[in-house]
């Protein structure tokens, strides 16, 4: 990659991630995994640990990119950021057992602790999100497919309608009914007065 284009390339990648472009996500995911696996394996983890930590980090990166909480500053910024998140997450697991009190406060660590505070603050929000994810995971296939195509793959109603050989209005109505179904399931999971 030419140096002059490097920054532009990162911007393109950022935009592609925001659109959930499958090629971009896959390239980013596949190309960065080996480094993180090596890190985790070297630090007493298994390949399963590596996968879990990496996916958590990847989703965190994706969220931050989507919310504009991260802006790339050089051509390998995204890779570096992903690595740092995964490393922090893993190091935290490793250290939680032994070294928690004697850690030095590196800038990375500071950033991490700051995030942890936010996490407490967002605890209830997270519970809701998990509930929504769980409900969506278990939603019936036709609805799940339709909602994924529209909200994740970001296909237009028109294209979806063509694929399903339906007219646009029926797809819109279908989408609405699927959302209601999902919403009811999300709301039903929680009984009125338990905060769990």
């Amino acid at each position: 990659m030419e140096h002059a284009n490097a920054h532009e390339h990162q911007d393109q990648l950022i935009n592609a991630i925001k659109c959930n472009n499958a090629i971009a996500l896959k390239e980013l995911y596949v190309s960065n995994y080996p480094k993180i696996e090596a890190l985790v394996l070297k630090n007493n983890g298994s390949t399963d640990d590596a996968k879990d930590i990496y996916q958590e980090a990847f989703i965190a990166l994706w969220n931050n990119v989507k919310n504009d909480a991260f802006t790339p500053t050089n051509e390998s910024a995204l890779d570096g950021y992903l690595y740092t998140i995964a490393k922090n997450k893993w190091m935290d697991i490793v250290r939680s057992k032994q070294f928690k009190k004697t850690q030095t406060l590196t800038p990375e660590r500071m950033a991490f602790l700051k995030k942890e505070e936010n996490n407490d603050f967002n605890e209830i929000e997270n519970k809701k999100l998990n509930k929504a994810m769980e409900a969506f995971k278990n939603l019936g296939q036709p609805c799940k497919q339709l909602l994924t195509t529209f909200y994740f793959d970001k296909k237009s109603l028109r294209d979806i309608a063509i694929e399903l050989s339906l007219d646009e209005a029926s797809v819109r109505n279908k989408k609405y009914r699927c959302m209601e179904k999902l919403r009811n399931q999300v709301l039903d999971i929680k009984t009125p007065n338990s905060e769990r």
Binding site: L25, A132, K137
Partner: peptide, 21 residues
Amino acid sequence: DYKTIFQGIEEQSLKEQLNTF
């Protein structure tokens, strides 16, 4: 609630896609 549900759909879809990757 809708905001959360939209986010849930996207995040769960991503999670499932990561597994295929």
